[in-house]
């Protein structure tokens, strides 16, 4: 059983929802990421999404774009993110790590080499924003070979007839994008989200996590009522990039927000 599956079973047995923070590897500085990951787990994170910095993060809103730029200024890329995952694993054998990023750094490394390196680093899942099911085949073969889950996005614009195509290739869980837009946008419609989550769950036994517009305990609680888990990204990355705050203060603020969200869902 994969770490992700084990985690969902544990959560279900306890009647809990998953709280999944997203931070960018190397943001705001490379040295703090692994420590931050541990603190997020202490504050109640069930799984971690580690954003892999990319020069052209097309699906991100301004907050996460800046996170990518801060990390890239320190030359943090896919290899360094894998090293961070491996370092995290030395002290935490249970919390799933999901890499979230864009196709090109992975393509450039090569799918097979990436799958091996990710498995060695203790990575459990991969979300590649710009590899929809039509383009993912070649990578999926390699991920399956090493037992890494491939997590797909489903969007509000995904037509019903596409759902089986996505679900067929997905493992670990389904990530429902709660709004039309980039990460961190503000127009979350929780009723629509609940209806769509219900529809997806009728088609698959995979858990459904929701992300893209969740920024505080309140929105997390609303979404958490229908979904199996919530992903929080921009709100954390915003706090981490808050130049008016000292580094330690920024980290404490982000960890604090995650704690609030945990108690909300």
């Amino acid at each position: 059983m994969s770490r992700i599956q084990a985690k969902w079973q544990e959560l279900q047995a306890a009647g809990k929802k998953a709280v999944i923070p997203y931070v960018v590897g190397g943001d705001p500085e490379p040295d703090v990421t692994v420590g931050l990951m541990h603190k997020l787990v202490e504050a109640g994170a069930d799984m971690l999404e580690l954003g892999v910095p990319f020069s052209d993060p097309m699906a991100e809103g301004p907050a996460i774009q800046k996170g990518h730029e801060r990390a890239l200024a320190h030359k943090v890329s896919l290899r360094k993110c894998l090293a961070m995952a491996a370092e995290f694993r030395l002290q935490d054998a249970a919390t799933p790590i999901i890499l979230m990023g864009y196709a090109n750094p992975i393509e450039h490394m090569g799918y097979a080499a990436f799958a091996d390196a990710a498995a060695d680093a203790g990575v459990d899942g991969v979300i590649t924003v710009d590899l929809p099911p039509e383009e993912v085949m070649a990578m999926n073969i390699e991920l399956k070979r090493v037992g890494i889950d491939n997590i797909f996005l489903i969007a509000p614009t995904t037509p019903d007839e596409r759902l089986p195509l996505i679900i067929e290739q997905a493992s670990g869980f389904i990530y429902y994008v709660s709004l039309k837009g980039v990460t961190g946008a503000g127009h979350l419609n929780t009723e629509e989200v609940a209806a769509k989550v219900k529809q997806i769950k009728a088609l698959t036994s995979l858990p459904v996590a929701v992300g893209f517009g969740i920024k505080d305990a309140e929105s997390a609680a609303l979404v958490g009522a229908s979904a199996d888990g919530v992903v929080v990204g921009s709100a954390l990355v915003n706090l981490l990039g808050d130049a008016s705050n000292v580094l330690e203060g920024r980290i404490n603020a982000a960890v604090g927000l995650l704690g609030d969200i945990r108690s909300g869902v």
């Binding site: 924003v129 614009t157 039309k180």
Partner: peptide, 12 residues
Amino acid sequence: GGKFVSETLMSA
């Protein structure tokens, strides 16, 4: 070539 975009744009 291909369609390397996020899911949100696939139907468009």
